[in-house]
């Protein structure tokens, strides 16, 4: 647009020059015209020689923004590069020469599962804004999108026991089963202190509990909800339980994760929820 308006002004000045036989006005006209051409080169050069490599991405939740990470590098300084996916926020950066720049390009994820990186555009109006140099890029890049965590559904065995101590009790003063290595956040009264005093290090007693007393995120917990809603609720609970360092397991049709705790377990569960029912998992 700006470029067209510019050309119109150049044309007007040319008319002025022709009608007044004014060579300096001609000169202005030609200067503007040559500048127009030089600007093409400058804008092109501002993008030419740019190296982009894709970096790993962090999973995101559905309907939230995932960040695809890229590393930019150029042997020349480049200014005002605008990057972004279609219909998503664009980011603008300046590159220094021979410096690696890591950027995160936002992408709004609409549904769970593996989200492939779409075409994304890198462009620049620099230096004069007369032209836009641009390029579409597609990287073989995917990001895992978890279901959107939605608070809902009653987790009977959890709700109603507000304190963590109660929770630990819930796990049962049942029959002692085995010692397992300490994990951060294990309830203090489940630690095998005697073993610790003997110098065996921190270990946790685990008990054989009855199934009904364990926390299970079960597919059949909320028959009233639709599939996606169930997944969302399970996602929510998984995060909640994991924050409380609770042991919980996951039961989906065809998949069962034994109860465990910790961030790794949470991620495993979330992954399973994200990919549930989606081809290739």
């Amino acid at each position: 647009m700006a470029g067209m308006a510019y050309l119109v002004v150049v044309l007007l000045i040319l008319l002025l020059a022709v009608n007044y036989q004014n060579n300096l006005a001609y000169a202005v006209c030609f200067t503007l015209l040559s500048l127009f051409v030089t600007a093409i080169l400058h804008t092109y050069a501002n993008l030419s020689g740019l190296k982009i490599s894709a970096l790993s991405t962090e999973p995101a939740f559905s309907n939230e923004i995932a960040y695809f990470r890229y590393q930019l590098h150029s042997a020349r300084a480049m200014n005002q590069l605008t990057l972004g996916f279609n219909n998503n926020a664009q980011i603008t950066i300046d590159l220094k020469k021979n410096v690696e720049h890591n950027i995160e390009v936002p992408y709004l994820c609409s549904r769970r599962g593996w989200q492939r990186a779409e075409l994304f555009r890198i462009g620049s109006l620099y230096p004069l804004g007369l032209f836009r140099a641009w390029s579409w890029l597609r990287f073989d890049q995917t990001v895992l999108v978890y279901p959107k965590p939605i608070e809902g559904g009653q987790l009977d065995s959890f709700v109603g026991r507000d304190s963590r101590d109660n929770m630990a009790l819930a796990k049962g003063d049942e029959e002692f089963e085995a010692l397992s290595p300490y994990y951060p956040g294990a309830a203090k009264n489940s630690i095998a202190w005697k073993a610790y005093a003997k110098g065996y290090g921190l270990q946790v007693k685990t008990y054989q509990g009855s199934a009904s007393d364990e926390l299970w995120l079960d597919w059949s917990l909320w028959p009233e909800l639709s599939e996606e809603q169930r997944l969302s609720c399970m996602c929510y609970w998984s995060i909640q339980l994991s924050q409380n360092q609770t042991h919980y397991g996951l039961r989906l049709p065809g998949v069962t994760f034994e109860p465990s705790a910790g961030e790794k377990h949470n991620i495993k569960v979330l992954e399973q929820l994200a990919l549930y029912g989606i081809e290739g998992c």
Partner: peptide, 13 residues
């Protein structure tokens, strides 16, 4: 940019 445009401008002129 102006300097780089000069040769072209002179040619046109």
């Amino acid at each position: 940019i102006l300097l780089q445009s000069m040769p072209l401008m002179l040619i046109l002129f």
